[in-house]
Amino acid sequence: MQGDVLVFVSGGNDRIGLEFHDYCRKRDLQLLLATEQSQTQFYYELPAGPALLRIEQPGGGRRDLQPEELRGIWYRRLPDSPPEVDEEDAIYSAAEFAAAFVGFLRSTRIPCFGHSRDEPFRSSLSRRQVRSCSNRLRIPLLPEPDIDPLLPIPLRDYLCAPQMACPGGAPSFVVPKRSALPDGIYYVVFSNRRQILAQDGVHSPEQLARARQVGDRIAANLRLESAVIEMAVEKGGTIALGSVAPYVTDNMILRDSAWYFDAVLEGFSA
């Protein structure tokens, strides 16, 4: 059984959280923002026992929720450390919170979005995985770009810097921005929705349709639920695979927030 209450877990000062809150309010949807660890309390028993989620709202008020009262949880960022925890301990506190909350999501089976339920610690895709996918699906790979040799390659981002603190306390990296390819086709996966982004007038409708089909196969093969897949049309018209960023950045969401928010809600209803 699925309830009505939505929860958005993310650190404070998050524009997406505020916009999503506004979006839900306009649609009479109940959304609770969980922005601090101490305001996001949970209890659960393993294997498969009772569970309880408590959200304390910043302005006061507390909701104790059974899993069946929840429509879904969007987990975007680790919520902020409690203010009374000093900086040194905050690192441990954050790691413990993330580890425990991931267990909560995994064990309660509450619909959730924002990280892979089965592989919550996957914060990047290696080229090995992308190459392997390319081999399996017989999709050619684009030539690799020049690489700063000290950079962790899968974390480079085409569209903006990833600032996600992912569950598990994996570090956030600041990596140089790389512009989108002018002739690139970008296939966005977000929950159950898909869309193609490309420069106007560069590709034919037929090329974009084929890119969409290729993107569908790649997303399914890599089991992506939030990602940007880079593609380009090679000489001869073949669609080739570039890189895969396994996240969608804040800026992308904010540029077209209704599409992304609808995708989250549709995913919970599916």
Partner: peptide
């Protein structure tokens, strides 16, 4: 490196082990 890293969360891994 780069496996599932289920050990990053003991409760997550307990669910997987079970």
């Amino acid at each position: 490196p780069g496996g599932r890293q289920s050990n990053s969360s003991k409760p997550f891994q307990l669910v997987e082990l079970h």
